[in-house]
Amino acid sequence: MKNEFYIGYINKLPKQTAKTIKKSIFVLIFVFVASGVVIALHHQKVSNSKFELGQLSTIEGYYFNEPVPMIKLLEGKDIHGNHIFKSIPLVNYAKFGVEELVGIYEEENKISLQGKKVKIVGTYLYDDGKALFELTKRAESILEVSSLNDPAIKEMIQPKIEKLGVNSIKGEIVDSKCYFGAMRPGFGKTHRACAVRCISGGIPPVLAATNYSGEVNYFLIRGSEKEAINKEVLPYVAEPVRLTGELVKIDDWMVIYVNPKSGIERVKN
């Protein structure tokens, strides 16, 4: 080593330096590959949520504005012969809700979609027993709208509402589109900015609350006057919060009606 001296533009590595560099290269390759493998092995478990990107589905059901724009699909009958419905909230393409889109459609076509039978095309998102439907082609996703003339059907599709009183629930406010499939994972601090953009754009906010047995329950969040409070919940998105408000079960969704000024508080994890 005494007389060794490395000069980059002289194209020969001194002997001892070459040995050190060779060993260093092996160490570096090992460190890079091992780091890649070990870090990849320790990602937090990703949910089984699904976004059927590129796979358009056409569905037919009954449209309701409340508690959030959703389509009610008839899934069959239970053992007692009662109709089973599945309520599927609708979301727009990208980070937007459908309220504006539906409003424009109704104005242009001089028709209200509320309680109508609609045929729409779009993309399914689903996870943990819940499903959402993206109107991937925006306004063109609404293919057909037809009125219901049969009073029996009108009666049959009316939402089943069960009031459960005032409750306080601890959880995390997430944007329903990402959480239920558009992003995997679609929760937590790393996803906060995206959730804020989605909720700000009209995607229905949902409180994801994990109970002591690890089971997650979902609550659509609306204002105490049943209004959308997307802008009001933005400062609390992706943080541990406690929501206090009237709890109502509407068909297969739980809804919590919250006064945004007094019903949302930050809590410690």
């Binding site: 890079f32 590959v33 091992a34 780091s35 890649g36 493998v37 870090i39 990849a40 092995l41 990602h43 478990k45 990703v46 949910s47 089984n48 949520s49 699904k50 992003m183 995997r184 994972p185």
Partner: peptide, 14 residues
């Protein structure tokens, strides 16, 4: 290494 292992272990990761 990273993408390969992640794709196998966490196929549902976006």
């Amino acid at each position: 290494a990273f993408v390969g292992v992640s794709a196998i272990i966490h196929p549902n990761l976006d």
